[in-house]
Amino acid sequence: MALPLPPGLNHAEVAFLAEMEMVTVVPRQRLESIDLLSGKTPPLRPPHRAELPLWLALLLKKQRRANIVPPPWLHPSSLTSIIHRETKEDPITFSPPPPPPAHANPHSPGTARRLHEEANLSSPFLPSCTASAPAGYLPYHWLEVAEALLTHAGDDMPAAAGDVRSLLRDLVEVRAAKMRSSTSALEGFGGGLMSLRGVGAMELAESRGFVLGVVDGVRKIGASAEAARREEEEMGGGGGEESDEDMGI
């Protein structure tokens, strides 16, 4: 009865999560609003676009009831510019995540306001894979959504599915190399913090076991040294630097 899985989401669970991302579809048939547990779906009236969760969009696509509008970041030009940024401009860190979506503030015209400020939404509930998402930024679930769209909606892609696929493969390799080199920074994981801004969900699931294992291992090996350091800091108060040197001897 109890779940036998180790802590942390695995690949299948991440893929499940990615299927909740909202995408934009162009319906080919009328479909009335459906009263689902997660709220009513918008009524589908061709040729008006509508936003649906990915799992439902794929279902409609398979039955040829709708076409999926690929998100702008999946266009070859956007992917090329991301690859350029990942390789040339910043070969160490990941490219930044998309900026939070904003809308016009009705209370003070002319200013922009964060979308859903009060609800504190986060991926996969942010509209980061819809047609209105910004190009040039990879959302958190980029690999899973791109893979699902290429597999099941290859004919809706802005370019030949093979071209998009080979660009994606380049991107996966570049970023996997970054993930590997970031683990060498873990070796000296003494600071207690490490930021992986811009990393994707699948990449995280891939190396979660290894990264967490290293961090926990370093902590356990250094536990006595850490305890000694804390004790000295408490005793010495201001003289932290001297005691560090003492410890080195």
């Binding site: 913090l193 930021s195 250094g222 850490e226």
Partner: peptide, 12 residues
Amino acid sequence: VQGRGVDADGEM
């Protein structure tokens, strides 16, 4: 964000 580490405590 503050974190405790083995060698030093980090803050960012």
